[in-house]
Design a protein around this nucleic acid. Structure first.
Length: 282
DNA sequence: AACTGTCCCTGCAAGC
DNA sequence: TGCTTGCAGGGACAGT
């Protein structure tokens, strides 16, 4: 499922294939994808507009438009962005199509494909971000973009109750970590997912900080993770490779690859399937 | 205030 | 084989 590394890989694809292009025509199939505003608002906001940038915050993709507005796209569970030749045959669940041109010649189509329809596409006015996009406005620290030090993590986790896994998944603190990478990060940091965040020592928090950076960077370098059920691919339809480096996610019942002593346990934490090693995570 | 549980949705896989 | 059931999960929202 698209988390920070997958979204970053898609962002790089947008940088390559979409930035500088003019949107000459927009089609919206299923209205649920544009539910934050409306079909008309998306078409009005994008038609005749040039895309200037492709940026990311957490799992949110944001493009500056020459109209002064911004385009936000979120893949959520099953969303995909695909660059295609004009008039190519579209897969099922293609909900938004942007026809892109250079010098008034249509060169490609950008497809937003999303079977489970959790994803969304919206054009918004940056001055209204607090009211129109509260989720984006309240996003926490992005560990690969913002200043992110062990001290900052310590400050964020200070006096926090609940459990470590739930806090890592909470986008208001650290943005971009989802279920897969939360488990991989906790494994590398040798921490049990049910630890109490507020009780971690500065040394332990530094280890966790290092694990967040290392896992996310390695996953970005591998082009993200592609799993059986979600079929995550980048803009050109290429799968990621980081799933081959997963040490706990999807390995319940198997021996631990790290310590060779424990077995990978599966439990439910914060309503999410959680995998961790019985021996080397404390 | 801060945390937990439920819901949204479809495709796939397991089990009868 | 063919059906039903359960599971996957990001984030909004309701409930505690």
């Amino acid at each position: 499922m698209p988390e920070l590394p997958e979204v970053e890989t898609v962002r790089r694809g947008l940088q390559e294939n979409v930035v500088g292009r003019l949107v000459v025509k927009v089609e919206v199939g299923r209205e649920r994808t544009v539910r934050r505003t409306s079909r008309e608002a998306l078409i009005d906001g994008l038609t005749g507009v040039q895309i200037l940038t492709a940026t990311r915050r957490g799992k949110y993709l944001i493009c500056d438009l020459d109209s002064g507005q911004k385009l936000m796209m979120h893949l959520r569970m099953s969303g995909r962005l695909i660059i295609a030749k004009p008039n190519a045959v579209r897969p099922a669940h293609t909900h938004v199509v942007m026809h892109l041109a250079t010098s008034n010649v249509v060169v490609s189509e950008l497809w937003f494909v999303d079977p489970r329809t959790f994803g969304e596409v919206v054009v918004f006015d940056p001055d209204l971000i607090k009211t129109q996009m509260p989720d984006l406005a309240n996003l926490g620290v992005d560990p690969l973009i913002d200043e992110f030090t062990p001290e900052i993590l310590r400050e964020l986790f200070k006096n926090r109750r609940g459990n470590l896994k739930a806090l890592l998944l909470n986008q208001h603190f650290v943005a971009g970590i989802g279920n897969i990478y939360a488990d991989e990060i906790l494994h590398l940091a040798k921490l049990r997912p049910d630890r109490l965040p507020g009780r971690l020592t500065p040394v332990t928090l530094s280890r966790l900080h290092g694990a967040i950076i290392e896992v996310l960077n390695k996953a970005v370098n591998a082009g993200g993770s592609t799993l059986k059920d979600t079929q995550y691919v980048d803009l050109d339809g290429q799968t990621g490779n980081f799933q081959d480096q997963h040490r706990v996610y999807g390995r319940a019942g198997l021996p631990c690859l790290t310590c060779r002593k424990g077995r990978i346990l599966m439990t439910l934490i914060a309503g999410r399937t959680t995998c961790y090693c019985s021996a080397c995570q404390h």
